[in-house]
């Protein structure tokens, strides 16, 4: 299997609190990898290293390395802005920018310098279709994105990320605030998308991980406890902690 993202003995601390304790993991290309674990396990922090959103936190110390396609992304010569074009992110709470649906999706491409109307239109349509939202909004692209329902907003956020044409999509508990129908729509979209993208799905919902991810990683208190194919992790976990978590004994 081809490795897309890798970390090598990655340690991270906020001030004196160590949040990631020597994480070494290889995420495979064109798969969905589920990151699960109770809150405080470090899974979201790990994500924020991969998209370098960790830059916006204070008092952070990082040791070890993280790479995409074999190139370090923690290196000083890496431009985090360029990196974030390759690594798209969808957050837990959908946060549309206070502008129209169209402009929300065109935001990223416009930053890259795409200003041609037709190109943007194609891009917006394409991204919305991939996020399974096109049919619901195609007649009102000019209306404010804030008018959409929560589930629609989250798919808008997914479409907005897709419009960047990233290689990797990170989803940080994207369905935590959504109803089951909206969740199902996002899951369907993700399953279709994995042929083109490498996807990491952070979730507290073990059933969701089991449903759609190819590989599963279980984090606990900043450590990677177990990482294997989803089938293996969910049917024959090597660690009792993993088993307890999956069975809902804690978390």
């Amino acid at each position: 299997m081809d490795t897309k993202i890798a970390t090598d003995r990655l340690r991270l601390s906020f001030g004196k609190t160590e949040v990631l304790k020597s994480i070494t993991i290889k995420v495979h290309r064109n798969t969905i990898t589920g990151f699960m674990g109770p809150s405080g396990s470090g899974k979201s922090t790990l994500i924020s290293v991969i998209n370098r959103m960790i830059d916006f936190e204070n008092n952070v110390r990082i040791e070890g390395d993280a790479t995409i396609d074999g190139t370090s992304i923690l290196d000083g010569s890496i431009n985090p802005i360029e990196l974030r074009r390759r690594v798209g992110t969808v957050f837990a709470v959908p946060i549309p920018l206070p502008r129209s649906i169209f402009e929300n999706i065109a935001y990223g491409p416009r930053l890259k310098g795409t200003s041609d109307r037709t190109t943007l239109h194609h891009l917006v349509e394409d991204s919305l279709k991939k996020a399974f939202l096109w049919d619901e909004v195609k007649d009102r692209l000019g209306t404010s994105a804030l008018k959409l329902s929560g589930g629609q907003q989250q798919r808008l956020c997914l479409a907005r990320t897709l419009a960047l044409k990233p290689e990797i999509i990170l989803l940080d508990e994207p369905c935590s605030g959504l109803d089951p129908i909206s969740t199902a729509k996002i899951e369907d979209a993700l399953s279709e998308l994995k042929s083109e993208y490498t996807i990491i799905l952070v979730s507290n919902n073990t059933k969701q991980i089991a449903r759609i991810s190819d590989f599963s990683a279980f984090f606990y208190l900043g450590e990677l406890i177990e990482y294997d194919t989803t089938e293996k992790v969910f049917t024959a976990p090597a660690e009792t902690k993993t088993e307890d978590y999956i069975q809902g004994k804690f978390g």
Binding site: I81, R85, T89, F91, L97, Y107, L111, C157, T161
Partner: peptide, 27 residues
């Protein structure tokens, strides 16, 4: 202006000034 708006803008590959110009000031 909520912090999350800035975070979203950064995550969509905006630089700091682009974020200020396109998200923070309009809001």
């Amino acid at each position: 202006v909520p912090r999350q708006l800035r975070i979203v803008s950064y995550s969509l590959s905006a630089s700091k000034w682009e974020t200020i110009k396109k998200v923070v000031i309009p809001a």
